[in-house]
Nucleic acid binder design. Structure first.
Ligand code: ZN
Length: 270
DNA sequence: AGTCCACCCTGAGGGC
DNA sequence: TGCCCTCAGGGTGGAC
């Protein structure tokens, strides 16, 4: 499932391939991955040139020369890649035919992903509704602590809410909470200042190291060239229920709330 | 306003 | 072999 490190890896790959290329043609095989009208989507993109690629949370941002912005959210199984002999796409949803002869494919098994076109102002407004970037130099532990105080939600749910902080999904939420010794169901406003500092450091460390490992591949995630990430063997709590905690050898527990699994060590996390 | 939850989807894997 | 069930969880819209 693409979270911040996986999207960052894809964005860095795309930055090497896409800026300066022009969309010659667009084939929409699965219209329900496009938010709004697919005709307008086509009209806004065919003949336009990619200027730059960046990331905001789990969104891939493509600035076009027309001033419009293509925003791609990969959902659970979304994937971008160039159609080549060694790259297999099982569920293509959109083909972008590029001017250098290659085809950029948006592939999505479950079609939870969404592609959308924004004007610059519309995107600024939308982006302003999202929380801070956890890896930004401007993001401080005091920002996290202050925001935690205003919510009684379980901390795992709080971390998944993109209005609080962007880019965190279930894997890295669980990993960060284990590293900082906080139980996933602890109400956000009952996290002490010291603990919020630990959580802040853990979150950044976990995300940075996952980027260095090019993301976590458990099932579907692939980078632009079709390769999986190397971070799955580094996970210390996610998916390890029934096994021994790597920090204290107590048994890892799995619980479920808000329709998602949470993994924790009863000894290390309170 | 804040919080919760069903829903959108498909494939993998287990039980029988 | 095959059918049915559960599980995976990002984002959203509607309920309370
Ligand atoms: Zn432990």
């Amino acid at each position: 499932m693409p979270e911040l490190p996986e999207v960052e890896t894809i964005v860095r790959d795309l930055q090497e391939l896409i800026p300066g290329t022009t969309i010659k043609n667009l084939q929409i095989l699965r219209p329900n991955v496009i938010r709004g009208s697919d005709t307008i989507f086509k009209d806004n993109l065919i003949g336009k040139t990619f200027q730059s690629i960046s990331r905001r949370g789990k969104n891939i941002i493509a600035n076009m020369d027309s001033g419009l912005i293509l925003v791609v959210n990969l959902g659970m199984t979304g994937r971008l890649g160039l159609q080549q002999d060694d790259c297999v796409f099982t569920h293509p949803a959109i083909y972008f035919t590029l001017n250098f002869g290659k085809i950029l494919v948006y592939d999505d098994v479950r079609r939870f992903g969404k592609l959308d076109i924004y004007s610059e102002q519309e995107w600024l407004d939308r982006s302003a509704q999202l929380g801070p970037e956890p890896l930004s130099p401007e993001y401080k532990h005091t920002d996290l602590h202050e925001k935690l105080n205003s919510s009684g939600s379980p901390i795992r749910s709080w971390l998944l809410d993109q209005k609080n902080v962007v880019g965190v999904g279930n894997i890295y939420a669980n990993e960060s909470l284990h590293l900082s010794g906080i139980h996933p169901q602890r109400p956000a406003n009952r996290i002490t200042k010291t603990e919020s500092q630990l959580l802040y450091k853990a979150l950044r460390k976990i995300l940075l190291s996952a980027i260095q490992n090019r993301g976590t591949t458990l099932r579907n995630y692939r980078d632009v060239s079709g390769k999986g990430g190397n971070n799955s063997s580094k996970l210390r709590i996610y998916g390890r229920h029934g096994e021994n905690c790597l920090s204290c050898s107590d048994q890892v527990q799995r619980i479920s709330f808000s329709n998602r699994s949470a993994f924790f060590c009863p000894s290390c996390q309170r």
